[in-house]
């Protein structure tokens, strides 16, 4: 890639030009080893570009709770406020065929004349409910749009993984699903920054679900004492509560910026991404060469630069091709 091309892509992304954003995403999704150097340059440049008033929101929760419908309502709200939105929507890959149906667009139906950009991705072999290129795509989109949304597939370890890609995690549940107890057991309620009881129009059942969640949270509060996650009732269908959710996200954003939390999260995210790349490429063998997973992780934490820089440094130190 020539430096003119690089400049053109970076400028195009920052100006929010669809065609160039799409091309950049195509380049960072490329899994061929020879694509890595240009990805490093590209993402390195974009890493430091941010749009004023921006944030990365992860939407997670079990299948069928209405995450896509909620995403659509949230996007509509932001667009009405004059803000732009980028989104990564993740769908599962069929293990047998390797193919995937990327169906979220059908529910979101963005209008061509709005500043909304949606990229659908499949999980491939990834277990965590994200696609391999999700992290890179987030770097690209957050340089282009006010808000970046990531919607996980909602199975497996989604809740855990999304924490390492989003600044604000929204856990979406539906009334009376009986999930609350399971979530409490799994310790998952420690993760979200905002909880949403969707399908609020179902009435009493929804209200009792919210009450359950609130009482669980009062016994087991989130991991950060200075932010107590709100539990919001939202009906993506009727639009009720969407404005409150948007307000909560903005508030969480100010909290992150006003504390060390944002840089802590970005650091966690970078390390997780570098570890993911390294394990994917060199597996247990590579990790052993650096003294095991824990040693590798603390080593990664000390290295500066983007996730791809960290990956290269780890590889070099392990005496493996970067």
């Amino acid at each position: 890639m020539t430096s003119q091309k690089l400049d053109a892509l970076v400028d195009g992304v920052c100006r929010g030009e669809s065609a160039l954003i799409a091309e950049t995403l195509g380049r960072v999704e490329d899994t061929r080893p020879e694509a890595l150097p240009q990805q490093r340059t590209l993402l390195g440049r974009l890493e430091n570009e941010t749009v004023p008033e921006h944030g990365v929101v992860g939407l997670t929760g079990p299948p069928g709770v209405g995450k896509s419908t909620l995403a659509a309502a949230l996007i509509r709200h932001w667009v009405d406020e004059g803000l732009s939105v980028g989104m990564v929507a993740v769908d599962p890959t069929s293990r047998r065929s390797g193919g995937a149906l990327l169906g979220d667009r059908a529910r979101l139906r963005p209008k061509p004349d709005e500043r909304v950009f949606i990229r659908s991705m499949a999980t491939h072999d990834q277990l965590g409910g994200l696609a391999p290129a999700t992290r890179a795509a987030v770097v690209v989109l957050r340089a282009a749009f006010n808000w970046t949304l990531v919607e996980t597939v909602g199975v497996g370890q989604s809740e855990v993984d999304v924490e390492t890609v989003a600044d604000s995690v929204v856990l979406v549940l539906q009334p009376g699903s009986g999930d609350t107890l399971q979530f409490m057991k799994a310790g998952i309620l420690e993760i979200p920054d905002v909880l949403v009881v969707n399908k609020w129009d179902l009435g009493a059942l929804a209200q009792s679900t919210r009450a359950d969640l609130e009482s669980i949270l009062s016994i087991a509060p989130g991991s950060r004492p200075e932010w107590s996650p709100p539990v919001l009732g939202v009906s993506a269908q009727t639009g009720e509560g969407v404005a409150k959710l948007a307000a909560a996200l903005r508030e969480h954003r100010s909290y992150l910026e006003g504390s060390k939390e944002l840089s802590r999260r970005r650091c966690t995210s970078r390390v997780a991404w570098a570890m993911e790349l390294f394990s994917l490429r060199y597996g247990t063998y590579g990790l052993e060469r650096l003294g095991g997973p824990e040693a590798t992780r603390s080593l990664a934490t000390e290295i500066s630069g983007t996730a791809l820089d960290v990956f290269s440094e780890l590889a070099t130190r392990a005496g493996l091709p970067a």
Binding site: S18, A19, I21, A22, E23, L25, G26, E29, L102, R105, P110, P112, F117, I118, R119, S120
Partner: peptide, 8 residues
């Protein structure tokens, strides 16, 4: 056209 472009 919009979808095809965004989705690459």
């Amino acid at each position: 056209v919009n979808s095809a472009q965004q989705e690459g």
